[in-house]
């Protein structure tokens, strides 16, 4: 527990906004910060928190894929009590935009961080981080467990889909990891809490579209079935992906984008 480090609104749940950095739980080596956060949230319903690990041994990506998270990176799960399950997915997009802002703030002059819809963070086309959310329903109330991983000073390996990079490669030496983690937890929590209060806005669409990678390019959306190819138009009012396919605009809420073989 970390009582006192977090102030919560006494008003309706949607107005609960962290006014200080959320309750911070620092861990050493863990399996997965999302799993640790789930346990913490079950014991502390309605509380915001940031679960931070030095290293994850079983970090995961989509559909249980492994996500390498060695020492030197930022491995965080934010615990975000949500007004409904329906807002959890767009909240993860909001968090991605906020994470990009933090990167720019911490490393001035870094090339503009981009978002590959919905959850990859890229710098010059190389993957620097990602987000993966889960919702847990605790006492019939949803809580978003928002996992954020950013390569900071850690060694990176190119995965099969996208070459990787760390922030240190764009800084004049190692990045101050504790300061970066603090800024990330604080800024992203505030933005998510603000979104829970305000809902989706035009400004959010603009911010996300501005940072969206591969706009105007031909892309392929891969999911459970046959891949779908189209031209990436942007995101709609709610964060859904808009593709133009055979002259028709279609919106998607699931899938993974790829440009391989389409250049």
């Amino acid at each position: 527990m970390c009582a006192g480090s977090m102030t919560q609104s006494a008003g309706p749940r949607s107005e609960a906004v962290p006014v200080d950095i959320p309750c911070r739980i620092d861990l050493g080596m863990v399996g997965s910060t999302n799993d640790e956060a789930r346990r913490w949230a079950a014991e502390n319903p309605d509380a915001w928190a940031a679960v931070v690990a030095r290293e994850q041994t079983a970090g995961r990506g989509r559909l249980g894929r492994a996500w390498a998270s060695p020492e030197g990176g930022a491995w965080i799960t934010l615990v975000c009590p949500a007004p409904s399950q329906g807002v959890a997915s767009p909240a993860a997009l909001v968090a991605g935009v906020a994470a990009c802002s933090v990167i720019e703030q911490v490393i001035p002059g870094i090339p503009t961080p981009k978002i590959r819809w919905p959850n990859d963070l890229l710098i010059e086309g190389r993957k620097v981080g990602g987000l993966l959310g889960e919702t847990a329903v605790i006492d019939r109330r949803p809580t978003l467990l928002l996992g954020i991983g950013v390569n900071v000073n850690n060694r990176v390996d190119d995965d099969l889909r996208t070459p990787a990079v760390n922030l240190a490669a764009h800084a004049d030496g190692p990045v101050d990891l504790p300061a970066f983690v603090d800024a990330l937890a604080d800024r992203v929590s505030r933005r998510v809490a603000g979104f829970f209060g305000s809902g989706w806005t035009d400004d959010l669409s603009k911010s996300l579209n501005k940072r969206l990678a591969d706009r105007g390019r031909r892309v392929r959306l891969e999911g459970a079935g046959e891949p779908i190819a189209g031209v990436l138009i942007g995101v709609g009012a709610g964060g859904e992906l808009l593709l133009e396919i055979d002259g028709e605009r279609r919106a998607f809420v699931s899938g993974e984008l790829s440009c391989r073989g389409l250049e």
Partner: peptide
């Protein structure tokens, strides 16, 4: 006229 938009996921076979 903007083409009607509906939500999709990649269609399962």
């Amino acid at each position: 006229m903007i083409a009607p938009t509906a939500y999709h996921v990649p269609i399962a076979a």
